[in-house]
Design a protein around this nucleic acid. Structure first.
Lengths: 152, 152
DNA sequence: TCGATAATCTCGATTGTCGAGAGATTATGA
DNA sequence: TCATAATCTCTCGACAATCGAGATTATCGA
């Protein structure tokens, strides 16, 4: 068992990593004239697309924690600059599905994909056993943090 | 060397951790009727206090990336609810030093201190060698991420 | 068909942020 | 010393993102 200082240091490292990851998103926003919410929305839409589903406006609101009025404004912004399209769901015509434009997809892939690539490249310096330890650590810490982010 | 899927998975774990850590801050904000910026400001003031320095309004603006007008509004908000005090610096009377109230300090320590404690407790399951690997990993990844958060 | 339900949008108000510039204080140079 | 520049904070007016309440449109079940 490491001493207390070392463990506190690791907790601080996690926080620093958090700050820098937030900054990556902020940088993407700055580069593309978006705000933080817009980026989170695009990420949510992209994640859904990767899972093979098209997000509706309502589900997007759930994902980024916005009320319907704000979601409308959000989608208006994204549609105006051509990042998403509103598409009526032919199955249930009450729904409006959101589709990312190719250019937005490409921009996101370039920015965040490049980061992912650099990260995975940096992981090549680690053995399978080491990465297994890291995975266990990240999972454990995320569980602890998740407990704090919901009710205590 | 682990296969590509495993490494991609670890990158996703980092993002998940990022989301949950943000949520911890958001939860603190919700509990205390603050917004995200307010929380970041309080954290910055607390960090400075821990280093033994009192943040001025200007430096706080640097820390949270706000213009002076916004910093004034920010400090107004925090002062109104009693979380900080404005104290004219006697050395340089242009400056306004910011001091956290004891109640705000205690609230922050309770919320984030409890998280830090749970995190370090969870680290007791790891050997010194394992934590050394984790430290190296977090440092490496943070470096990569930092390069992306500044210029590419 | 008709009422109930669901998803989205409109409107008015509030709030956080910014740019420009003013006021006060300190540092600098002739 | 005194005038000027630099620094720090604040005020003011404008704008953009968000929300709550309620309206609108589409679908479903009886």
């Amino acid at each position: 068992m490491a001493d207390a200082d070392e463990r506190r240091e690791l907790a601080l490292l996690l926080r620093r990593l958090n700050v820098e990851l937030d900054a990556v998103g902020q940088r993407f926003a700055d580069l593309h004239g978006l705000n933080r919410t817009d980026v989170r929305a695009l990420v949510a839409i992209m994640d859904a697309a990767r899972r093979g589903e098209a997000l509706t406006a309502g589900r997007l609101g759930d994902a980024v924690d916005l009320r319907s009025a704000s979601v409308t404004a959000l989608v208006d912004r994204l549609e105006k600059v051509g990042h998403v399209r509103r598409v009526r769901d032919p199955q249930d015509r009450r729904r409006v599905a959101l589709e990312m434009s190719d250019t937005a997809m490409a921009a996101g892939a370039e920015h965040f994909g490049a980061l992912a690539q650099d990260l995975t490249a940096a992981m090549e310096d680690y053995s399978d056993e080491e990465l297994a330890v890291v995975r266990r650590f990240l999972t454990d810490m995320t569980d602890v943090i998740t407990r704090h982010s919901r009710g205590s």
